[in-house]
Design a protein around this nucleic acid. Structure first.
Lengths: 199, 199
DNA sequence: CGCTCTCTAGAGAGCGGACTCTAGAAGGCG
DNA sequence: CGCCTTCTAGAGTCCGCTCTCTAGAGAGCG
């Protein structure tokens, strides 16, 4: 076995750096080759296709993110929701490149062209994640009386929204953002504000 | 003067339709030509450049959106925040193609390559919008004691987040979403939840 | 009816990017 | 030391996209 001169993560890191300078179409194979100072042979040995490279970038980011959050699902539901929100913010601050990948959205990564392997990996991740989220939503419904759409908005979408403003502008995520997100989640889940037209 | 066979909005509508099928790089001039059933001469007669076309698409969407919201800034600040959130949701439901343009984000539209004219137009819009938002934030700080980051999150980013989930999946925006957004905004701005470590 | 001016049509040049192909470097193993 | 297998190198092909260019269609106007 000959030396593995370049690490695969080197290539993905270069791709993530390109993403930071623009949108997903800034990730060209030619660009990655330049940015990572690697030959096209090396890239195509690992990734048969640009779509396969994008898939690896996406899956790596998702796995890093989910691995960080899975341990937090155990608590009492409102506490879990708060912890998830806080940790989402923290993870984004600590992994801005991966965070940008996720905030760019799967749709930009040509999922239709992914090799089966990548697609299967993603679907397995997604199924596991969905199970956790669904259970949390169920528990939160019982604990707070909110509906599904409202819970998803507050628990899932709100932390992403908090962070998107800073990541897409390339600015630092403020230190106070975890507290702000916590307060928003907590008050939205527990405050006594009737919906229009009744409780 | 000869007949204006194609309307400019026909071309922009075709571009918006392409955006709906993928990310912003799905908007190619060649693709717009096919989608709108128009000759390349017609397109390049109006838009000297792909970037100019993207600029027109962006500016049209922004102007439609802002025109809808400007009248709502007059009220008492919390009421204005709620009204803005509700109307944002409604506008997105009524204009899903334009909404996708905005949610895709300016960064995907190559603003660096825009012709000066488009850039000036955008900057004027943006300045006017920022003035309105800044005044609202100031008033909300006084009325609620929240900080800038928190207000922006709840008033600006939260309604976008509420809508993004549905638009990016191509699903209908639920009829109840306005009420959900209203409740989230209201409770986040008025609930008595201390920030960690004080207040 | 011809002249002009605006707009349309569509062929094709030029370019950049995805991907292929061949030559070869380097470790393991007899 | 030779051979196999894995990985690297980089030139070259092909394709699609942006943009250009020329020919011409159709309205207004004298």
């Amino acid at each position: 076995m000959p030396r593995l001169v370049h690490d695969t993560s080197t290539i993905l890191d270069a791709a993530a750096r390109l993403l930071a300078t623009g949108s997903a179409d800034a990730i060209t194979v030619a660009g990655v080759i330049r940015e990572a100072a690697v030959s096209s042979g090396s890239v195509y040995h690992r990734f048969p296709t640009r779509a396969a490279l994008l898939a690896a970038l996406w899956n790596r980011a998702v796995q890093s993110f989910h691995a960080e959050l899975y341990p937090l699902f155990g608590d009492e539901p409102v506490a879990a929701a708060v912890a998830l929100g806080r940790r989402t913010v923290t993870w984004c601050r600590d992994h801005p490149a991966d965070a940008r990948v996720l905030l760019t959205g799967l749709g930009s990564f040509e999922p239709a062209a992914w090799p089966r392997e990548s697609r299967d990996l993603r679907e397995a991740d997604q199924a596991r994640w969905d199970r956790h989220i669904r259970r949390l939503v169920t528990d939160l419904k019982a604990a707070t009386g909110r509906g599904t759409a409202e819970i998803l908005l507050v628990v899932v979408d709100l932390p992403y929204a908090a962070v998107r403003r800073y990541l897409s502008a390339g600015r630092e995520i403020p230190a106070a953002l975890e507290d702000i997100v916590e307060r928003a989640i907590r008050s939205a889940l527990t405050a006594d504000q009737p919906l229009r037209g009744g409780s």
